[in-house]
Every structure is written in C-alpha cells, then in structure tokens.
Amino acid sequence: MPPNPRIGSHDHATLSRFDPLSRIICLDDFDRGFCGWTQLVGNYEDDLDAMLPGYAQHSSPMLSTIGNWDSGSHGGVDGDYVLKIATPPRAGAQNVAIKRLTFRQPGPIRLEAYVTFKPEASELRLSETDIRSFGFLFDLQGSDQAGPGSERVMPHVRFLNASDGKHVQKWQFKRQAVPIVPIGTDNKTISHYHLAPDGWEDLEGGEQRLCYNEIPTKINWHYLRFDFDLAAMQCTHFQCNDRVFDVSGFDSLRIPAMKNLWCMLNIAFFAETDTDKRAFLYLDSVCLSGDF
C-alpha cells in the first residue's frame, strides 16, 4: 500500500502490523483517545429502569496505561494508552465497548486487533482461570433497498477461557436467537440481551492455548483477524495469532431486520469474569478495512 501523506509516521507503524483490505475504514490507536468507542447502553424509553439487566451492568470503557503495583505501567504495543474494558467484580458479570458505523457498500470487510486479557491483580497468584471469556461481535443490517426477508445479522465470537474455575480455552460462536422484549409503550423500541451465557457453540477445532504470563501483572498481546462478507452475510476467515480456524460451520445470530437500523456496521468487544473479581480486556489497536 503506497504511503498516504495525511497519515503520520505513528499511524504508518500501527498500520504495518495489520494486513488490511484495500480501503481502511478506521484505524484506532488508543494513544489518540477513544476513537469513537463507547459504552454499550441498553435500550430504554421514558425510564432508565426499562433497560434489560444485562445492559444495566455495563460501564464506559477507559483509557489506561495498564497500571499495576509491581512495575508501574505496562502501556501498549508501542505507546502509552490502551482501551480497557472492565467488568463489575461479580461472577458472570460482563462489560462491552462498541463502535457504531454504517457501510457504504456491502462487500468484504476485515476486523483486526491486538488484545490481551487479565483479571484484576488483587492477589499474589496467577489467577489464570478468573476470566471466564472475552470476545467480539458485529451487529449488521442490510440496506433499506434489500427488500423482503432482510435480516439483522450478529456474528459473535468468544474465547471461553474458564468455567467455574476450570480451564477450558476454546473458541465459540453463537447463532441462537434470544427473546426480543418490547421497551416502552410507543412501539418504537425493542431490546434483546444477546450476550447471555446460553446458546454458545464450539468452533470446530477451536481449542487454543493462549499466552498467559507467569505472574498476575504480566501481559502479552494477541493478534485477532475476522473476515466477513456483507453481501452474503457470512464469515470467511477467523485467525488468532498463528492459528487459522475452520469457519465452514460458523453461523451468526439472525433476527428480522429492524425498521431504523439500515446499513448498520457496529463492532463490539466484551469481557466476562468467572469470579467476584474484575476482568479486564485491553485493546491496543483496532483496524477495520474493506474491499469496496
């Protein structure tokens, strides 16, 4: 890809560690701030208490230097700040950060990111099974010109690290729809908590042992790549570090299209804790690219 004079040297360094498609939709390095990532707020109408409980637990992501008590601050891959997604300190609690976009043309897209995960380092032990899972999802909907049968399509991927204190270490996906709940009385708003713990399926050959360093404050960054075709609404590639996984059996959660979400292209990352301790998912940088 030829150099773009409007891209600074730091952005070129960030981009060089990704393998983007021909068009960069966004290149988010959190040394530059939040880059449009925000809290996933649940739908409500008239009263905040109308929000489903799954969403009510969410809080805003934070910019972090990954501070800790033994070495000060860890920082990111090549800078000071990362995006930190932190759960409440309650077993099974979750938190989600989201970026909300729309697409200009339904074609191939590629999500790439450098991520790492740790529980809060509140004990002098490794705590490698304290995080239940982390993962990412898209929330997609076709054009308003798509015609009858248009769908809202939500590919979900998670790394199930542990369950009830036992190491699991495998990738999963979710296609089981969840109940849709009306919100308010004006027939304009509905909600569904699609990150509920049930309905996850194992990805074929999805077992993977990720790098998890030897003390509670050490981290190592992991590379993720997920390719998706917006025209076919199908996943075409999933990779973590050196492993490329078989996605022939992968499918997405699908529900009827909603009347005000046309051309939606939302990305989200999430974390879930397995103990009464906060779980942290850190994003160093995220690149979304497309071929259109």
Results as ranks from 00 to 15, higher is better:
Gly76Ala: 08
Gln239Trp: 08
Met258Gln: 10
Met1Ile: 06
Lys174Cys: 00
His167Tyr: 06
Ile24Arg: 06
Ala231Asp: 14
Gln39Gly: 02
Gly36Cys: 05
Thr129Trp: 13
Gly206Ser: 05
Ser16Val: 04
Arg125Tyr: 02
Asp202Ser: 11
Pro148Ala: 02
Asp78Ala: 14
Asn4Gln: 04
Ser163Arg: 15
Phe280Asn: 15
Asp291Gly: 02
Ser9Val: 15
Pro256Ser: 04
Glu214Leu: 13
Glu272Ser: 09
Phe30Val: 01
Lys118Thr: 09
Ser163His: 15
Leu288Met: 14
Gln57Ile: 07
Leu230Cys: 05
Lys174Ile: 00
Phe292His: 07
Asn213Phe: 03
Gly135Glu: 12
Ile215Ser: 11
Leu195Met: 15
Thr102His: 12
Asp164Trp: 08
Arg23Thr: 13
Val178Phe: 13
Asp227Val: 00
Lys188Thr: 03
Arg125Ile: 06
Gly76Ile: 14
Asp28Thr: 03
Gln105Gly: 05
Ala56Asn: 06
Ile66Val: 05
Tyr44Leu: 08
Ala13Thr: 09
Asn266Phe: 07
Asp139Gln: 12
Thr14Asn: 10
Phe280Arg: 09
Asp164Ile: 08
Gly142Val: 10
Ile255Asn: 01
Glu207Leu: 05
Arg125Asn: 08
Ser59Arg: 15
Ser285His: 12
Asn4Trp: 01
Cys263Gln: 11
Leu52His: 06
Arg23Gly: 05
Cys263Pro: 01
Phe30Thr: 02
Ala279Ser: 14
His194Gln: 09
